[in-house]
Amino acid sequence: MGRGGLSVFVAFIVGAIAIVSLLLGDNPALFGAGAGSEELARRLTLPGDVLLRLVVIVIALSVVIGIVNLLYVHIGRLARGKFYSAVLLASFAVTIAWTVLNKGDASLLEAVQVPIESALAALLFPSLALGGARVMQKRADVWGLLFVAVVLIVLLGSLPLAELAPVQAFSDWLMAVPVNAGARAILLGIALGAAVAGVRALLGQDRAYRG
């Protein structure tokens, strides 16, 4: 077994255990009636529980990996005189210091984080509106036209103006029927793709395990 071999092996074994446990555990009905099936279902649930718990904590800890990476990258940049990295690092340090000193005080959150984040989210509006104005530039075909038409209809349909009642009715129908169908198909497609890719990963056939 080469160097990649161990991880593929682990992936395969753990994957098999996880999928069986998550999929089949916790439902005695699946194994017929009787005391034995209860016991079986309970036992099947156990490894999934353990793995889930383990991975949940690992994922929570992965924030540390992210932070280390962030600091690594920006200290490196700072060393090359990047002013903005200094801002970032200072902001990081101040926040940590603040939360350590004022336990449980959320005013920094309200004063800095919330306004910047909301303002960025608010900035999406002009970006989206002006971007929407240029759809026909990027896609000068019938699909672009359709896209723009639907955007306009839904926007108009959201307006509380009495004169637009027919548009509202049409927009409601649009949302309930064709949009519903299209979104459902996209979702189904994604679920299908995720399921197939997931199964492939469970089979240990992913590059991520090696190297």
Binding site: L128, V135, G189, I190, L192, G193, A197
Partner: peptide
Amino acid sequence: YALADHALIGEELFA
């Protein structure tokens, strides 16, 4: 779909 120069849709990510 609206803003990118090229957009794949949903599932095409997996392909």
